[in-house]
């Protein structure tokens, strides 16, 4: 492992519920109190209707690969030991999309349309990253 630290989320009052959720093995996102839109990335207001009020709702953690790429180039030396690694844009069943990694399969075997489910990777005491793995694994 490289001893160069990987980037970590900056946890703030606004984002803490998301990271508390992943630490507790749950993927949660903000749902607008007014129009019910589930939004991601995390933000102060609903980008559909600008309502501030929201609740953090648990998602199924299931979805499908919307786009899949494989990093061979090392842009940040913290990832030098990881290449080649997959990054996927994941379409969650409840509507939002997020970037993450599909793990548990060789990176170049991840295909657009593959069904995936969330897995939780504790990378520090405070931060557990949501990643994804094939649904049937």
């Amino acid at each position: 492992m490289s001893d160069h630290p990987k980037p970590l989320p900056e946890i703030s009052d606004e984002t803490r519920p998301f990271w508390d959720g992943t630490r507790n093995q749950q993927l949660v996102m903000q749902q607008c109190a007014r129009c019910r839109h589930i939004r991601y990335p995390i933000s102060r207001v609903c980008p559909e209707c600008l309502e501030v009020g929201h609740e953090w709702v648990p998602l199924s953690g299931r979805g499908e690969v919307y786009s899949a790429i494989v990093f061979h180039q090392v842009y940040d030396k913290a990832f030098a030991d990881d290449v080649p690694y997959n990054v996927s844009l994941v379409q969650l069943d409840e509507g939002p999309r997020m970037f993450s990694n599909v793990v548990g399969v060789p990176p170049s075997q991840v295909r657009v349309g593959d069904r995936v489910r969330v897995v939780f990777d504790p990378v520090t005491e405070e931060v557990t990253l949501p990643r994804f793995t094939p649904e049937d694994s």
Partner: peptide
């Protein structure tokens, strides 16, 4: 890394090529 706040870099999503690779992957699949 692209994205604001909880940057996409957390997952190693960085550099200009990556965004176009996302487009290429999807275009190829569709």
């Amino acid at each position: 890394a692209s994205g604001w706040g909880d940057s996409w870099g957390i997952w190693g999503m960085m550099g200009a090529a990556a965004n176009s690779a996302v487009a290429a992957s999807r275009h190829m699949a569709l």
